[in-house]
């Protein structure tokens, strides 16, 4: 996403400008010609036409009400927290918590790995006692999920110069790791907060409350960056 710098991605931007919006034509003639999907049932034609028209009217939004840039699904559904210098300097990670309690773990834009020339070139989930990508969690009860501590290693990301351990950040069950990163490590560089996420962890509510105390929210994070 070239047009957005990584930081602004985190920003919730409720402000919307309507200036550039053209007035919309709500006349049905603009669109009816296209939509000719007609039910073959014995509906009388007039009634059906009325229904189609009503459907069109209901579906078409008022353009002047639409925000220039709508909040993304990530922004709308997750709350972002950050950890700076977790275990080691420059090891900055994000935790995006969904309203349902699940936490998406990934690398913060200020993570030291992004500063290396060429960015991240490979990701290795084979850390610790087991390969994190080898565990198949199943069922509603999340059978086989491993319970990890906040400092348990999730994977190792490598750049041309060095490698860095990425950690769980919150204590909980590891539901999945992003296996796409094995074949496409560049997703970490291009979209670390979306397709480049590292893992999904399900903390117990009590553990989450404890962990939350040591996390920065987005405002605190921004501030901490401004300070040298």
């Amino acid at each position: 996403m070239k047009e957005l710098n990584p930081i602004s991605e985190f920003k919730q931007d409720p402000e919307t400008s309507h200036e550039n919006c053209d007035p919309v034509l709500h006349s049905s003639s603009v669109v009816t010609s296209q939509d000719s999907k007609i039910e073959e049932k014995q509906h009388n034609e007039e009634e059906q036409e009325q229904e189609e028209e009503e459907l069109r009217r209901l579906l078409l939004p008022k353009v002047e009400d639409l925000p220039d840039t709508p909040p993304s699904a990530v922004e709308a559904n997750f709350t972002t927290f950050l950890l700076r210098d977790f275990m080691k300097p420059g090891h900055d990670q994000y935790i995006r918590r969904h309203a349902n309690g699940l936490c998406v773990i990934g690398l913060a834009p200020t993570h030291v790995a992004f500063k290396d020339k060429g960015g991240i070139t490979s990701v290795d989930f084979n850390v610790g006692k087991s390969d994190r990508s080898g565990i198949k969690v199943t069922g509603k009860r999340k059978k086989n999920a491993q319970h990890f501590e906040s400092n348990t290693a999730l994977c190792k990301v490598c750049t041309g110069d060095a490698s860095y351990i990425v950690r769980c950040c919150v204590k909980g069950s590891l539901l999945e790791v992003n296996e796409r990163l094995i074949k496409q490590p560049e997703l970490l560089n291009t979209s670390p907060e979306r397709e480049g996420y590292i893992a999904i962890i399900m903390p117990r509510p009590a553990d989450w409350l404890k962990a939350k105390a040591s996390l920065l929210d987005f405002e605190q994070y921004k501030k901490s960056r401004a300070e040298p």
Partner: peptide
Amino acid sequence: IRVLHRRSPLEREKTIHWMRIERIAG
């Protein structure tokens, strides 16, 4: 993710039969 807390983690194949874009004037 929004339902993963209460549903099985699965990968399913689904079919998108067709799509059609309707532009919005303005």
